[in-house]
Amino acid sequence: MKILYTAEALATGAGRNGHARTSDGKLDVDLAMPVEMGGNGEGTNPEQLFAAGYAACFHSALQMIARQEKADISDSAVGARVGIGPTDAGGFGLAVTLEVTLPKLSAEQARELTEKAHQVCPYSNATRGNIEVTLEVSED
């Protein structure tokens, strides 16, 4: 694979209760465990960062496919829910639900474009076979 761009970030402090910053300083956040996991929730967490990244990346993949297919995806949106919980093997795992809204397309067209985007999105390719990713498609 030819690398086109490399992002760099450093986490310091106490992991999930620490700090994260990108090398260019554009992302500079305090981290905190969510209340649901026993933390104070007074910072962002890795699951929120992953959800934001996956939603943005998937939306870009969807736009690329739409351009190729000359489909109108104006007013589209992609939301991501990232869940974390214990696995049967004793560690922790993630599960993702992507909520894709394509109000200008029929249900069939929206589902087809979403499936195609799922095949080209770098986050989808990285997670495929590793975590459960559920695609939910709506027209509004």
Results as ranks from 00 to 15, higher is better:
126 A>Y: 04
120 V>K: 04
75 D>L: 10
67 R>Q: 13
39 G>P: 04
115 E>G: 00
94 L>V: 13
90 G>V: 13
107 A>Q: 14
41 G>F: 11
127 T>A: 12
95 A>N: 14
103 P>E: 08
81 R>I: 06
106 S>T: 15
82 V>H: 09
72 D>I: 02
55 A>P: 01
68 Q>L: 09
35 V>R: 15
109 Q>D: 14
113 L>M: 03
81 R>S: 13
91 G>S: 15
37 M>T: 05
110 A>R: 05
106 S>P: 01
110 A>T: 01
90 G>C: 13
94 L>N: 10
94 L>H: 11
90 G>L: 13
49 L>G: 07
100 V>T: 13
71 A>S: 12
110 A>E: 02
35 V>I: 15
55 A>D: 01
78 V>W: 06
93 G>T: 09
38 G>F: 08
87 T>N: 13
103 P>C: 06
89 A>Y: 03
98 L>V: 07
97 T>D: 15
66 A>R: 01
123 Y>H: 04
116 K>C: 00
35 V>H: 14
88 D>Y: 00
51 A>S: 10
38 G>E: 09
104 K>L: 03
42 E>N: 15
51 A>Y: 05
71 A>M: 11
91 G>T: 14
117 A>T: 03
109 Q>P: 00
103 P>G: 10
43 G>N: 07
76 S>K: 09
74 S>Q: 11
49 L>I: 14
84 I>K: 07
102 L>D: 08
74 S>N: 10
110 A>S: 08
118 H>Q: 03
44 T>P: 06
92 F>I: 13
46 P>N: 09
37 M>D: 09
57 C>E: 03
109 Q>W: 00
103 P>Q: 11
76 S>T: 06
42 E>Y: 04
85 G>K: 08
47 E>H: 12
90 G>T: 12
71 A>E: 05
117 A>D: 02
69 E>Y: 02
49 L>V: 06
66 A>Y: 02
120 V>Q: 05
97 T>P: 04
102 L>E: 07
129 G>D: 10
128 R>K: 14
36 E>G: 10
66 A>H: 03
73 I>V: 15
69 E>M: 03
81 R>A: 14
36 E>N: 08
112 E>A: 14
113 L>D: 02
72 D>S: 05
44 T>H: 10
118 H>L: 01
72 D>Y: 08
33 M>R: 13
121 C>L: 05
119 Q>C: 01
102 L>N: 11
80 A>V: 02
92 F>N: 14
98 L>N: 06
122 P>S: 11
94 L>R: 11
105 L>G: 03
82 V>L: 12
62 L>P: 02
124 S>W: 05
92 F>Q: 13
64 M>C: 00
46 P>T: 10
73 I>M: 05
55 A>E: 02
80 A>W: 04
31 L>T: 10
71 A>I: 00
65 I>N: 03
70 K>N: 14
49 L>M: 15
88 D>S: 15
64 M>V: 10
126 A>R: 10
33 M>N: 08
61 A>G: 13
71 A>Q: 13
70 K>L: 07
120 V>L: 14
87 T>H: 08
124 S>V: 08
104 K>Q: 15
32 A>W: 03
33 M>V: 12
79 G>K: 04
58 F>L: 01
103 P>N: 09
55 A>S: 13
47 E>A: 12
100 V>N: 07
96 V>C: 15
113 L>S: 03
129 G>E: 08
55 A>N: 00
78 V>H: 06
118 H>R: 01
129 G>T: 07
103 P>F: 10
84 I>Y: 03
124 S>P: 04
73 I>R: 04
